[in-house]
Design a protein around this nucleic acid. Structure first.
Lengths: 187, 187
DNA sequence: TAAACCATGTAACATGTTACATGATTTT
DNA sequence: AAAATCATGTAACATGTTACATGGTTTA
């Protein structure tokens, strides 16, 4: 039940059309709550029907047909309520860890290449986050809003750092395992 | 498309009934791929229909009606194929980070208590993982299978460590923010 | 004027969640 | 014999994914 609230947050930050929201979900919000354009349009329809947002009267009505939405007071209230409400953390799902566990049963054939690829993807994402940090959060601190957003970004940076390191560790283990293979396990 | 493969892995580790699988998903596998008993029964039905698993002929047929399943060769092959196939990492979803971002817009009212609660839950999960490590992975290393499983457990331990630390950091920031409130931002 | 892209959507399906149903066994 | 628990399920719904549809606008 978080997609509507992700959209409300994005719209409060800046009123947008469906496509603009989609773009922003590909960049910032989507880093921790992804959504496709189909989900976004469906949800915009629901939020409008519920009276939480409304379409802004188009300034150039007939042009690209772009429809921008803004949050109504009821929407802001709903978001504030949701933000403050206690929620249990959902168990994470990670297919890569599942594949390692499966590999313990069916063998590691073909897995190593994909671990290396994932390592590079995480390293690249880490670089992206660091650029955002350099650009949007220079050393001299901003206000409360900026500090909260920086906190979120730090989580992203630290998580990607963790994954690159863990994958390095996993790859080192793989190297050791294939090295020691066939020589018994008491080395 | 990972639940069937999670089930195949669990069944290869040990043939089980639906309820036994549910229990194991609550403990080990579910730490990185959760599932409810409804999902498990539905998926067991599909896997059986596809010929990847089969119900073991009951030893005490009329007793508790427990139905145990085992993996057929086709199922093992499918799991090996899936494990080796290259897959892109799915973007993570984290409602707590979303709430922090929302709080930057609608205010932090009520959030701090839940951060504290999450911190405790993560600390408790970390303790659980460490107990499993002490019990199942004593210093003297085992074979390749054990090292792979230990690698997965280490990811869990390090992730929970990260979250407890990050939440400590977040709570410290919260304390500072409310302290500095109203005194301007050039501290 | 054809191809590419912008912008908004529909439809069908897969997966995940919540609430309830059924009958057997064990405990009180 | 009533209540609790075990074990397997069904039904309805919410959410997420994939493929396609439509019409306008820009670029080649």
């Amino acid at each position: 039940m978080s997609l509507p609230h992700a959209i409300l947050t994005a719209l409060l930050e800046k009123p947008s059309s469906g496509l603009e929201l989609t773009r922003r979900f590909d960049r910032s919000i989507g880093y921790f709550w992804s959504a496709t354009h189909q989900q976004i349009y469906r949800e915009l329809g629901k939020l409008e029907a519920e009276g939480l947002i409304r379409a802004l009267p188009a300034e150039q009505p007939a042009r690209g047909q772009k429809k921008a939405y803004e949050v109504l007071p009821a929407g802001r209230e709903e978001l504030a309520r949701w933000t403050a409400a206690s929620q249990d953390p959902k168990p994470h799902r990670d297919a890569l860890l599942l594949r390692l566990r499966a590999a313990a049963v069916v063998g590691t054939e073909g897995l190593e290449d994909d671990l290396r690829r994932h390592r590079e993807l995480h390293a690249r994402q880490l670089e992206t986050y660091r650029e955002i940090e350099r650009r949007d959060f220079p050393p001299g601190m901003g206000g409360v809003e900026d500090r909260l957003r920086h906190l979120v970004l730090r989580a992203g940076i630290d998580l990607e750092t963790f994954w690159t390191q863990w994958l390095d560790h996993a790859l080192a283990e793989f190297a050791e395992m294939s090295e020691g293979q066939g020589r018994g396990r008491e080395g």
